[in-house]
Amino acid sequence: MGIRFIKISVVYFVIGVCMGMYMSMTEKFDLSPVHVHINLLGWVSMALAGLVYVAFPGAAETTLAKVHFWLHNIALPIMMIGLACLVSGVESAGPAVAVGGTLMVLGIILFAINILKNIKN
Protein backbone atom coordinates (compact mmCIF):
# COMPACT_ATOMS: atom_id res chain seq x y z
CA MET A 1 0.00 0.00 0.00
CA GLY A 2 2.89 2.36 0.75
CA ILE A 3 4.21 2.21 -2.79
CA ARG A 4 0.73 2.96 -4.18
CA PHE A 5 0.56 6.10 -2.03
CA ILE A 6 4.00 7.23 -3.18
CA LYS A 7 3.29 6.60 -6.87
CA ILE A 8 -0.02 8.47 -6.89
CA SER A 9 1.50 11.31 -4.86
CA VAL A 10 3.90 11.91 -7.75
CA VAL A 11 0.93 12.27 -10.11
CA TYR A 12 -0.51 14.96 -7.81
CA PHE A 13 2.93 16.60 -7.67
CA VAL A 14 3.05 16.87 -11.48
CA ILE A 15 -0.50 18.29 -11.52
CA GLY A 16 0.37 20.84 -8.82
CA VAL A 17 3.59 21.93 -10.53
CA CYS A 18 1.87 22.25 -13.91
CA MET A 19 -0.88 24.35 -12.32
CA GLY A 20 1.76 26.58 -10.75
CA MET A 21 3.55 26.97 -14.06
CA TYR A 22 0.28 27.79 -15.84
CA MET A 23 -0.62 30.42 -13.25
CA SER A 24 2.85 31.91 -13.48
CA MET A 25 2.80 32.08 -17.27
CA THR A 26 -0.68 33.61 -17.45
CA GLU A 27 -0.23 35.76 -14.34
CA LYS A 28 -3.67 34.59 -13.21
CA PHE A 29 -3.51 33.25 -9.70
CA ASP A 30 -7.20 32.64 -9.02
CA LEU A 31 -6.59 28.90 -8.68
CA SER A 32 -3.89 29.29 -6.02
CA PRO A 33 -6.00 27.55 -3.35
CA VAL A 34 -6.42 24.53 -5.65
CA HIS A 35 -2.69 24.53 -6.44
CA VAL A 36 -1.79 24.63 -2.75
CA HIS A 37 -4.23 21.89 -1.73
CA ILE A 38 -3.14 19.56 -4.53
CA ASN A 39 0.47 19.99 -3.48
CA LEU A 40 -0.22 19.62 0.24
CA LEU A 41 -2.93 16.95 0.30
CA GLY A 42 -1.95 15.22 -2.93
CA TRP A 43 1.82 15.33 -3.05
CA VAL A 44 3.11 15.90 0.48
CA SER A 45 0.50 14.14 2.60
CA MET A 46 0.23 11.10 0.36
CA ALA A 47 4.00 10.77 -0.02
CA LEU A 48 4.46 10.94 3.75
CA ALA A 49 1.67 8.42 4.33
CA GLY A 50 3.34 6.17 1.76
CA LEU A 51 6.69 6.44 3.53
CA VAL A 52 5.04 5.61 6.85
CA TYR A 53 3.40 2.58 5.29
CA VAL A 54 6.70 1.46 3.73
CA ALA A 55 8.40 1.79 7.12
CA PHE A 56 5.58 -0.06 8.89
CA PRO A 57 4.25 -2.70 6.49
CA GLY A 58 1.96 -4.17 9.15
CA ALA A 59 -0.07 -0.94 9.13
CA ALA A 60 -0.01 -0.87 5.33
CA GLU A 61 -1.68 -4.28 5.06
CA THR A 62 -4.79 -3.29 7.03
CA THR A 63 -8.26 -2.52 5.75
CA LEU A 64 -7.84 0.92 7.33
CA ALA A 65 -4.93 1.64 4.95
CA LYS A 66 -6.92 0.55 1.92
CA VAL A 67 -9.96 2.62 2.91
CA HIS A 68 -7.68 5.60 3.63
CA PHE A 69 -6.15 5.28 0.16
CA TRP A 70 -9.50 5.19 -1.63
CA LEU A 71 -11.14 7.91 0.45
CA HIS A 72 -8.15 10.19 -0.10
CA ASN A 73 -8.13 9.60 -3.85
CA ILE A 74 -11.88 9.98 -4.26
CA ALA A 75 -12.12 13.01 -1.99
CA LEU A 76 -9.24 15.06 -3.38
CA PRO A 77 -10.47 15.33 -7.00
CA ILE A 78 -14.03 16.06 -5.85
CA MET A 79 -12.82 18.75 -3.48
CA MET A 80 -10.36 20.28 -5.96
CA ILE A 81 -12.79 20.39 -8.89
CA GLY A 82 -15.38 21.92 -6.57
CA LEU A 83 -12.87 24.44 -5.23
CA ALA A 84 -11.74 25.37 -8.75
CA CYS A 85 -15.35 25.99 -9.71
CA LEU A 86 -16.05 27.89 -6.50
CA VAL A 87 -13.10 30.28 -6.86
CA SER A 88 -14.08 30.74 -10.52
CA GLY A 89 -17.46 32.05 -9.46
CA VAL A 90 -19.68 28.97 -9.53
CA GLU A 91 -21.35 29.36 -6.14
CA SER A 92 -23.27 26.10 -6.50
CA ALA A 93 -19.97 24.18 -6.25
CA GLY A 94 -19.86 24.65 -2.49
CA PRO A 95 -21.42 21.25 -1.73
CA ALA A 96 -18.72 19.47 -3.78
CA VAL A 97 -16.05 21.15 -1.67
CA ALA A 98 -17.93 20.16 1.50
CA VAL A 99 -18.42 16.53 0.42
CA GLY A 100 -14.83 16.17 -0.77
CA GLY A 101 -13.50 17.86 2.36
CA THR A 102 -15.56 15.66 4.64
CA LEU A 103 -14.39 12.49 2.87
CA MET A 104 -10.81 13.75 3.10
CA VAL A 105 -11.08 14.34 6.83
CA LEU A 106 -12.58 10.87 7.31
CA GLY A 107 -9.70 9.33 5.35
CA ILE A 108 -7.13 11.18 7.43
CA ILE A 109 -8.85 10.16 10.66
CA LEU A 110 -8.69 6.53 9.50
CA PHE A 111 -4.98 7.00 8.78
CA ALA A 112 -4.47 8.34 12.31
CA ILE A 113 -6.42 5.45 13.84
CA ASN A 114 -4.41 2.98 11.76
CA ILE A 115 -1.11 4.46 12.89
CA LEU A 116 -2.11 4.65 16.56
CA LYS A 117 -3.52 1.13 16.50
CA ASN A 118 -0.94 -0.73 14.41
CA ILE A 119 2.43 0.90 15.01
CA LYS A 120 4.03 -0.23 18.23
CA ASN A 121 7.47 0.15 19.81
Rank of each mutant, 00 (worst) to 15 (best):
P33A: 11
V87L: 05
V10R: 11
S32R: 15
V44Q: 12
P95E: 00
I6G: 04
D30Y: 11
G16E: 00
F29R: 15
N114F: 12
I119S: 09
Y12R: 06
P57T: 00
L31K: 13
K117R: 14
H68E: 11
V90M: 01
W43V: 09
S24W: 12
E61A: 15
I3E: 06
A112N: 12
H37E: 04
I74K: 03
M21E: 08
Y53A: 07
V54Q: 13
F13W: 04
A65H: 08
L64P: 15
Y12M: 08
L64G: 14
A59I: 01
V14W: 11
G42L: 01
P95T: 04
S45N: 08
G82I: 02
P57V: 07
G16K: 13
K66Q: 10
G58W: 10
A84M: 10
V36P: 15
V44A: 09
I119Q: 04
I119L: 08
A98R: 04
V36A: 15
I38T: 02
T102W: 02
F111M: 09
N118K: 11
A112E: 08
T26W: 15
A65I: 02
A65Q: 07
I108Q: 15
V67D: 06
S88T: 00
M104A: 12
G20C: 13
L41M: 08
M21L: 13
G16T: 06
A65C: 11
W70G: 12
F56D: 07
T102Q: 02
M23I: 09
D30E: 10
A60P: 01
M46C: 11
V97T: 01
L83G: 00
M46N: 13
G16I: 00
A96F: 01
L76Y: 01
W43C: 08
G58A: 09
M23Q: 14
L83M: 05
S32I: 12
L41R: 09
K7G: 03
V44C: 14
V36I: 14
N118G: 10
